[in-house]
Design a protein around this nucleic acid. Structure first.
Lengths: 230, 230, 230, 230
DNA sequence: GATGAATGAGCTTTCATTCAT
DNA sequence: AATGAATGAAAGCTCATTCAT
């Protein structure tokens, strides 16, 4: 197991509870890491409780001391992965708030791709594929967690965006970006480099946002389009 | 497929074998339909062989007469679903070949959405989530089945498309359209109507294809395209 | 397993379902017998599903083909034991209907003792000790099953019985007889022979029934008592 | 018991050991009370060692400091319950020694009912249902504990009792009274009030004891008794 | 002594698969 | 060919017990 008193020196005069809690925390982390590792590298069907315990280096009894049922392990895994990933994405979104869309978007797509690559199965597949989990996880999605920040980000670029309804724009961008990343990751065939993928998807998203939403109605856009088309 | 030349034998001048083979075909279909129904309405975890047999109205022994293992049922289900769906899409793509992109794309997105809605789990989730199946199904995807047709379709609209590399354009469009549809279907929240979704995603795709690859250069892009194309 | 076509000759022209059902019936019986044997000879705590299957000579899967959960095995065991035992007791009670109480009672007590000896754990201990079973088995007791017959029996001897309230008499007799038998069987110490036990308990019951219910009020009885006491 | 001479050591002139032992006594009591509470209110199957520890407000390690195995907790619980209950019953039996049977019996039945109601599961069910305990507990029964006193009580009423063999009379009375109480308590149906139950069972017992052993012989019985006694 | 995290044998139950009929 | 009873490896989970702190 992981060293139980790594930080014991700092609270040596503290209660006995501290090392206890540290040890427990380490155990929980080991279990969650084992679960993620198995799900990612071998597939959800291999994530049996006994195997998770084995990989985590603890006994099955210990697993059940911290998680009442297998479902709870997966739930916790999804939760912590989403929270961690979203924290990073939120950070970046805020950092890039003042950059123009065309600069910020590729950075955002790149980070999201990185996040999804690292936790692809957890972020994309587990929540919706395990029927038992679905109900409880309807709001536990990266989208929900990021919504406020994304909204702020889009709002900050409101003038660049030609789509009338901002809500629709946000939603469709989410569908496009996350959907494309998801397909890209699932599609093992290396027909396109990561850099190009990021560039193309960002470009598509930015164009979607910055062109007028109705290409047949708005004169300004129409002109652009006519030019492009001619 | 299990009996690839079954329809061929139907023309065998009414031997005693025909009704037998017809019955076999009916049994196989019943099993596949039962499997799809269960996967779609109850979830993959409910698709046990015994339950599939029950829903199909045959005995478990019969199921194993036609499919050597459970995996084979799922494989056949995916295969037939993909083949059927792709046949329809191919048909439409060819029918719309002569319409401008901006007209054809929404029709295509709408049909794909319809196909995925009907067979969402089969088309999107089963293949990649059942680790054991993945290996054998790397090429068994709608994309592979549709590739030639899609390529023809895009080629036919080559002059409308500003993206230099057509392969890239095709790939990215697939990622965007299928990805977005997949996310939309998984996202139960009805934040956007189907019509609007189709319109927005089509618009995004068309703009991606028809805008110049460098969104910052104004009219020059058109020249670039001409240059690139010449 | 038990010979599946023992009686096949009689229904040889019958459906294929008959041997099937016979086989299934034999399996169910084997399971129930195994369960009773284990509960009786080793104790309820040894009645694990795997061990029951082993003793029954079937696989654990087979057990679960006939019983949805362990509880159901025990339930079925109690049920069939009670039904069989009560059928025999009912028969005897009716046969002895016309004998005077003092003759019929020892016969009844003897049979009940025999029944309880054979199925002591099942009849006496399982139903009330397994918390999960209690609820469903509140009316599934030998008393409930025998009530009508016992009532008829007592009614037939109404004139011999001095207890005013017949319901009370029946109830108290049940408590006394079954309770005493239960204690006798649990008490391994052979301080009294079975014959004497039967005689004494019968005597006690008959005296309880045939003496006046209020020894202080009824003159006839009182006289008897005064005589006895003097 | 675990500390059989604890009360003795309390007189040890207040050494440092006394508070320690007092605490130990309190801990043991807390554990036993927790065990009884769980067995009584939730059922034996809920009496896990961890849960007992929790209810007792001590750690599982502490439980195992006082009891080497779970069995020992149950054993001690039965023991202390029996000892306490029997002490009370012995007291009353001696107090009622000089009352006539017909007066003393209802009082005794009432007290026994009260004792059994309070500790029904412990007194009646635990000892015999836990196979592992049975062996060691063959003599650890209320009957064994009370035997001397009951014998004295019956002996004191010897002239009232018509049953020739006093040992038999005592045994059968125990079977009848305890058995009936046991059934009455298990039978949740309130078909009879407690008062009436006590009255009826007492009456039955008294009649059993005070009637001649041959119910068909009229007054002769008395002579028999005199003969038997002389 | 006291704590409670950790252990692991063993329980209930499921389900893909086999095989006698 | 069709049936469905039977199989048994393996899953999820419990709980008496141990042991480092």
């Amino acid at each position: 197991m992981i060293e139980p008193d790594l930080t014991a020196s700092e609270t040596d005069a503290g209660t006995r509870k501290v090392p206890t809690q540290l040890r427990a925390r380490a155990t929980v982390d080991a279990i969650l890491q084992a679960a993620e590792s198995i799900v990612t590298h071998k597939g959800y069907e291999y994530a049996t409780t006994n195997y998770i315990a084995k990989v985590a280096g603890v006994s099955i009894g210990t697993v059940y001391q911290y998680f009442p049922k297998k479902e709870a392990i997966i739930r916790a895994l999804i939760e912590s992965t989403i929270i961690n990933s979203c924290a990073k994405m939120r950070e970046q979104l805020l950092a890039d708030l003042h950059k123009p869309l065309a600069h910020a978007m590729p950075l955002h797509v790149a980070l999201r791709l990185k996040m999804h690559r690292a936790h692809s199965l957890v972020l994309l597949r587990l929540p919706k594929n395990i029927t038992k989990l679905s109900t409880a996880h309807e709001q536990l999605t990266p989208e929900t967690f990021l919504y406020t920040t994304i909204h702020a980000f889009f709002n900050h670029h409101r003038e660049e965006i030609m789509v009338e309804n901002l809500e629709t724009a946000i939603l469709v961008c989410e569908y496009l970006v996350v959907g494309a990343i998801s397909r890209y990751l699932q599609d093992g065939s290396q027909k396109i480099t990561e850099e190009e993928f990021i560039e193309q998807v960002s470009a598509a998203t930015v164009r979607y946002l910055t062109s007028s939403s109705n290409p047949h109605a708005k004169p300004v856009t129409r002109d652009q389009k006519i030019i492009a088309k001619s």
